[in-house]
Design a binder for these strands. Structure first.
Length: 728
DNA sequence: AGCACGCCGACT
DNA sequence: GTCGGCGTGCTC
């Protein structure tokens, strides 16, 4: 292409900040940039990495126009990925620059990985004096391979200074070792899967889908333990055989290390890993090698969706119903939905897998937009647990306790059989509310007015909403009474205390996300449980997620009703999913197992669905319920986050939004009572839920709010939690 | 999002 | 007299 050398070439560059369009930069003489090139550009007082975008550069005054400082030696970000960024930005009403920022999360990856300095034995060379240590080194190195200093020292069993001494004498020459792949390439035919007839049928259908260059969405719906993973691995194999890259999204991948091993068993190598807990160096290598196409399969958290794949050909979303797929800060998106969008843009298949699909995925399947494949039997020797409710009105716990005698009795039996029990309570800490018995004072968060949760182990009162914490006082701050503070209700710490009282000799472990020692410690504890080093596990919802506890034969749900009455339109659905997942932990090894739900509402549809195992009826009912309530078939909810400088101002906006809403809509302002105000960076935020908005209404309605309404001084952010399928 | 600039309270 | 809090505004 010939260019007029007198005119400066100007290109748009997406910079990682909330700009609603790319900025224009001049291309320096001789620089080669194409759309997708990653560049370093001056931005105000600093320099940032940006992506050259499409189209001609916008007009800027010559005074503002600054040149690109550097074009990184890095594969350009592909067209599909750029369209994806544009789409996500438009859909989530986020500035595209902020979406692009999610792509640029590995700063050091834009420069090629520097080769490692290695050393090689120089043929015929020898040291002045031979020693035993030197001889061992030469023995190892004589093969003429390149070694790293540390590697050679380790292999020869000597210290690095021995090697250094030999190098100084010219025995070794310095060579560059090219950067190694971060993972070995997976081999789709490494280990043939052993599948049941049921699984084989499902796998065959998925292979068909994944072997084609066409956008399809398949819902793989199978009870826990039915071998969904093995089945979708066959789709992964088919995509790999087609020469495509594959993305497997997994919620909380940092905790599901066992998944990587299962993958390795099938494909002979681990997948590339991607999550926020990854060491920076590893992160950069994965990013780079995904962009270069060296990494063929990534298993990652939701942010992996924004990796710069060059030839993505399949996305699997495991546990597609999991709320962890929602990002609820900065750019608001649901990774499951955006995966579908990514597949549409890239014209490739998407597989959504879950034992307890979301309502919207089920509706999409019912309406024929998704194909649904059902796996109804548990795999191999895994047996479904017997499930029953414990009516807490009839079998109440002893005074001051929370465990029904029925449950304690079963725990006793399980312990006697040397098997494991899991007690599940979705509440961290010791007690969710603390009050003064003298004056009735309740401890409340000063920032967001929700109750402070006592964490006895840490000796603190913690706000689970905004993270505020304070030491637990001895005296009531209101009336000054000493030793009259009383903990109300249970958290996992308190349940563990009760378990210790009943079973002082059992090995009890408490698992919750706020555990001291972080993810690393959690992984260790999970390993220990898998090895049978614990008898009783008391845990929050993180125990529901994909871990295999082979000796687990009793699952007790402490408060199965928790979460049913919180006003969330998804309460029943969420509770069903959680209870199904957690009771599914039992009986993986084929031993007879039991799941018990402590409830005050044994006749509630959720409890009935869990106990009878009739998920179909539950879904039908929930979907019907939505229809009867005049809500759209699949949980189309949109939330609006209003930021304002003061609480009064935010309330004013809430009123204005209510007035601006079309009459057919209902707007719930989730204020202090339901969803306490969060103080974020000095700004109050409200969340409004807009319900019952039809797709076409919604966009116009939001636009009206953004353009016509009283424009808030802060920002209005909109979270659109609608099935994006209807926008495609 | 960063980062600088700018205007009011407690201290080396 | 300054150091430092965060409110406001700008970035091609």
């Amino acid at each position: 292409m010939r260019e007029d050398s007198s005119a400066k070439r100007v290109v748009p560059v997406m910079v990682p900040m909330p700009a609603d369009r790319p900025y224009s930069y001049a291309v320096p003489e001789g620089a080669r940039v194409v759309p997708g090139s990653i560049v370093r550009v001056p931005l105000g007082p600093r320099e940032v990495a940006g992506i050259v975008w499409d189209g001609p550069g916008g007009e800027v005054s010559a005074k503002k126009l600054r040149p690109i400082s550097e074009v990184f030696d890095c594969p350009p970000v592909g067209e599909e990925v750029r369209r994806f960024v544009d789409w996500v930005a438009a859909y989530t009403l986020s500035p595209p620059g902020m979406v692009a920022r999610m792509l640029l999360r590995a700063p050091a990856a834009f420069d090629p990985e520097p080769p490692i300095e290695g050393m090689r034995f120089v043929d015929g060379a020898g040291p002045d004096r031979m020693t035993a240590a030197r001889a061992r080194v030469l023995e190892m190195a004589r093969d003429g391979q390149a070694w790293t200093r540390a590697g050679l020292a380790h292999a020869a069993g000597v210290s690095a200074s021995v090697i250094e001494g030999l190098r100084e004498q010219g025995v070794f020459e310095t060579v560059a070792i090219p950067p190694q792949p971060v993972v070995a390439p997976p081999d789709p035919s490494y280990a043939g899967a052993e599948l049941t007839a049921d699984q084989e049928r499902a796998a065959e259908r998925l292979r068909e889908k994944a072997g084609a260059n066409a956008f399809t969405v398949t819902l793989l719906d199978g009870v826990t333990g039915s071998g969904k993973t093995e089945v979708y691995f066959e789709a992964v194999a088919a995509a790999l055989e087609r020469g495509k890259q594959v993305l497997i999204l997994i919620p909380e991948i940092a905790l599901t290390q066992a998944f990587l091993e299962r993958f390795q068993d099938r494909f002979g190598a681990k997948p590339g890993e991607w999550h926020s807990d990854l060491a920076p160096r590893k992160r950069e290598r994965v990013w780079r090698q995904v962009a270069e196409g060296q990494v063929r399969v990534v298993a990652g958290a939701r942010s992996a969706l924004f990796l710069p794949f060059r030839e993505l050909g399949l996305i699997v979303v495991d546990e597609e119903h999991d709320p962890a797929y929602k990002q609820e800060d900065r750019v608001f998106y649901n990774a499951r939905d955006m995966a579908v969008v990514r597949g549409h843009i890239g014209n490739f298949p998407v597989v959504l897998a879950s034992a307890t699909p979301s309502l919207e995925s089920r509706v999409n399947a019912n309406q024929g937009r998704y194909e649904r494949i059902v796996l109804s039997a548990r795999f191999a020797d895994a047996a479904l647990p017997d499930l029953a409710t414990i009516d807490m009105r009839k079998a109440p716990p002893e005074r001051g306790g929370f465990l029904s005698p029925v449950l304690i009795d079963q725990m006793k039996k399980t312990l006697a059989r040397k098997e494991q029990s899991l007690l599940f309570l979705n509440r961290r800490g010791y007690a969710p509310l603390t009050l003064c018995r003298v004056c009735g004072h309740r401890f409340q968060c000063p920032d967001c007015s929700s109750w402070l949760v006592e964490h006895r182990f840490r000796g603190q009162l913690v706000c689970h909403h905004c993270g505020h914490n304070e030491p637990r006082p001895e005296a009531c701050p209101e009336c000054g009474a000493l030793d009259h503070l009383v903990a109300c209700g249970p958290g996992v710490e308190r349940i563990a205390e009760e378990v210790d009282r009943h079973f002082p000799d059992a090995r009890t472990i408490v698992l919750s996300s706020d555990m001291l020692g972080g993810v690393k410690r959690l992984r260790l504890e999970l390993d220990a449980i898998a090895k049978g080093e614990a008898d009783i596990i008391v845990g929050t919802q993180l125990v529901a997620k994909g871990h295999n506890f082979p000796a687990m034969t009793l699952v007790g749900v402490i408060d199965a009703d928790l979460g049913l009455a919180n006003g969330d339109p998804r309460a029943a659905e969420r509770t069903f999913q959680l209870l199904a997942q957690v009771t599914g932990r039992a009986g993986r090894s084929g031993r007879k197992s039991l799941g018990l739900l402590q409830t005050y509402q044994p006749d509630h549809p959720v409890m009935r669905a869990i106990v009878t195992g009739d998920a179909e009826a539950f879904y039908e009912r929930e979907i019907g319920e939505r229809e009867r309530a005049g809500l759209p078939p699949f949980g189309r909810l949109a939330g609006i986050i209003v930021s304002a400088a003061t609480r009064q101002e935010a309330e004013g906006h809430a009123r204005a939004l209510r007035r601006a809403a079309p009459r057919s809509d209902t707007i719930d302002v989730l204020g202090p009572a339901e969803a306490p105000l969060a103080l974020v960076a000095g700004r109050h935020r409200f969340r409004l839920l807009v319900q019952g908005t039809r797709r076409c209404d919604l966009q116009g309605y939001l636009r009206a709010l953004l353009t016509a309404g009283p424009r808030p001084r802060g920002s209005i952010r909109v979270q659109v939690d609608i099935d994006p399928q209807s926008f495609l």
